[in-house]
Design a protein around this nucleic acid. Structure first.
Length: 583
DNA sequence: GTAGGGTTAG
């Protein structure tokens, strides 16, 4: 029997269509063709290459690429795109460098992905070099290239350069607006993102669902409920398609503003809830300390036939962690590990969650052994969780050991140095505290300045510790003094000793009584209508004294205070906090 | 023949 005389595009096309989602079958086809000893046309390898990049088997795609005779620019582009889509920016950049050194001319389609690879790499010099190439080839005004360059500079924190590229864009279309807004939100510049969102109209362009998603996400980040509501209402009025992604962003905005009830009501009426909606709601309950509801929702999700993913499990474990449900946490973790489903095998984040749960509940040894049992290298999140637990339980010896490991994987994260310093401080080891501070200064590690923000009448008011820049400062400080007096009469004692948790080391002149969250709360008391809760958002963890202060305030004023810190929500009502003082 | 923007977690 003779083999087919020649494999052509026509032979392959139907085969590839049938097998395009199955890597093994594709590989078999490739092997059969090779075994005939006939030469394979580049166009056929091209089709295979595209299939494998989509399927995510980049090693095989690379092998195919290397077999090709003089691949043309289009194929280099395909390979680069494959690496970027499979989150391998390093490989993508290296392919581009190879292409460049071989003198292959790039085309307008080359750069969007090369630039995206640079954003992912985070190497500023490399990004700037690529920008140079773009200019050299005269491609800087190609809209897609420019848009990607703009995103890259936002990711590098070079907002000025991003602005310049945006302002001087020839065809500044909706995608360019959306790209810039989304990049700003993702990098934590939500205020800038919202101000851009408001300006979209100046180009005579209407925002679409993508713009609204980013804007809502920005509102969640800032904790501005009123602005978020207004944006959603307008989107509806303007007839913008409020698809499931918009609704999920809407839901997330409620969650991040601490409005669990509003989130729940919305969740119940979202038409086509998907795994993101369920995960958001579960995590929302978890963050707000309603662990029973989170776990009940998780059961309901499964009984409705929806498959949880690894993010869903993060919500479940964090629910356990925020409420100290140790045995349940262990059970959920084991369920993941033994599920046989590779999509929900525990990742580093799940280990970090478990370490947090075990450690804060006082099982420090178990937490430490748990880390040792990890099948992958623990990252700073995992070690950081244990260090946090060491601070709470004042285990100096373990803390030092943990810190050694932690600083090896993450030497420059300020909050971890602060945590270690707090362990020493609590133990009265001021010599060691000084050493930590000295090390931070030597390495140029700057502590993050704490601030709190409060929304009032659609505006965000930001307060730093000891801040007197707010126009209402005088009345805020007067009211604060008056309240402190009242509180002391009913038993409030300022905790002037060293604070626990990863709270910033305040400058010496910033006294405890003027921490940013206290100023925020008092501002809220003066400005927020009595029927509404006061929502305070803090960029770091709330300190112990401010936590106590808030409980007293909620008691003496009868106001509800919702405080979001770096990790969770605290709902203060009538002298009690929803976290039950376990945080 | 190929192309830029969106939601959960961290």
């Amino acid at each position: 029997m003779h083999p087919p005389t020649l494999f052509t595009k026509q032979t392959f096309k139907p085969l590839l269509q049938v097998c395009s989602s199955c890597p093994n079958q594709l590989k078999q086809i490739h092997a059969i063709v090779l075994s005939t000893g006939l030469s394979i046309k580049n166009s056929l390898i091209t089709q295979l290459l595209t299939c494998f990049t989509i399927l995510g088997d980049m090693p095989y795609a690379r092998q195919l690429f290397d077999e090709m005779h003089k691949p043309r620019t289009f194929l280099w582009n395909t390979l680069i795109k494959g690496y970027v889509k499979n989150e391998l920016p390093c490989e993508a950049a290296s392919v581009y460098r190879q292409m460049h050194s071989l003198g292959i001319s790039p085309d307008p389609f080359t750069y969007p992905f090369v630039v995206k690879a640079c954003s992912g790499l985070g190497e500023t010099w490399e990004g700037e070099a690529i920008h140079g190439h773009v200019v050299k080839y005269g491609l800087e005004f190609v809209a897609m290239v420019r848009t990607e360059l703009m995103i890259m500079y936002v990711k590098f924190g070079e907002l000025g350069l991003a602005d310049f590229l945006f302002e001087s864009m020839v065809e500044r279309d909706l995608v360019a607006w959306n790209a810039l807004i989304a990049a700003c939100v993702q990098m934590g510049y939500a205020g800038k993102a919202l101000s851009l969102f408001r300006q979209i109209g100046v180009d005579g362009i209407q925002p679409d669902a993508v713009s609204v998603v980013s804007a809502l996400s920005g509102c969640g980040q800032l904790g501005c409920l009123e602005i978020g509501e207004e944006i959603y209402r307008l989107a509806r009025k303007e007839g913008i398609d409020c698809n499931i992604i918009v609704e999920n962003a809407h839901l997330d905005m409620y969650v991040k503003c601490g409005s669990v009830e509003m989130a729940r009501d919305l969740f119940e009426i979202i038409p086509c809830r998907n795994v993101v909606s369920w995960s958001t709601m579960i995590a929302g309950y978890a963050m707000n300390g309603e662990s029973e509801k989170a776990l009940a929702l998780f059961s309901r999700m499964q009984s409705e036939g929806l498959k949880p993913n690894y993010v869903t499990y993060l919500g479940v474990l964090s629910a356990c962690s925020h409420s100290g449900l140790v045995s349940q946490g262990r059970a959920y973790f084991n369920r993941m590990a033994h599920s046989g489903d590779k999509n929900i095998q525990p990742r580093k984040e799940h280990y970090a969650c478990m370490v947090d749960l075990l450690g804060r509940s006082g099982h420090l040894d178990e937490a430490f052994n748990f880390i040792k049992s990890m099948p992958m290298e623990p990252d700073s999140g995992v070690w950081g969780a244990l260090l946090g637990a060491c601070v709470i339980h004042q285990n100096l010896e373990l803390a030092q050991h943990v810190a050694d490991n932690l600083f090896e994987v993450a030497p420059a994260i300020a909050s971890y140095h602060v945590l270690l310093s707090n362990v020493y401080a609590t133990a009265g080891r001021w010599d060691c505290v000084d050493k930590v501070r000295l090390r931070m200064r030597k390495k140029g590690i700057k502590k993050i300045t704490a601030y709190s923000s409060v929304e009032s009448d659609g505006e965000i008011h930001v307060f730093f510790g000891g801040d007197r820049s707010h126009p209402q400062s005088a009345s805020i400080y007067d009211k604060l003094e008056e309240l402190l007096k009242q509180m002391k009469c009913i038993g409030y004692i300022p905790k002037t000793g060293y604070v626990l948790h990863d709270v910033e080391m305040e400058d010496k002149e910033v006294t405890l009584s003027t921490h940013s969250e206290k100023l925020g709360i008092v501002f809220g008391l003066i400005n927020v209508k009595p029927e509404y809760p006061i929502r305070v958002m803090k960029n770091l963890r709330v300190c112990e004294d401010c936590h106590t202060f808030s409980k007293f305030i909620s008691k003496i004023t009868g106001r509800n205070i919702i405080m979001r810190d770096k990790k969770r929500f605290h709902h203060f009502r009538n002298g009690v906090c929803s976290c039950k003082d376990f945080w």
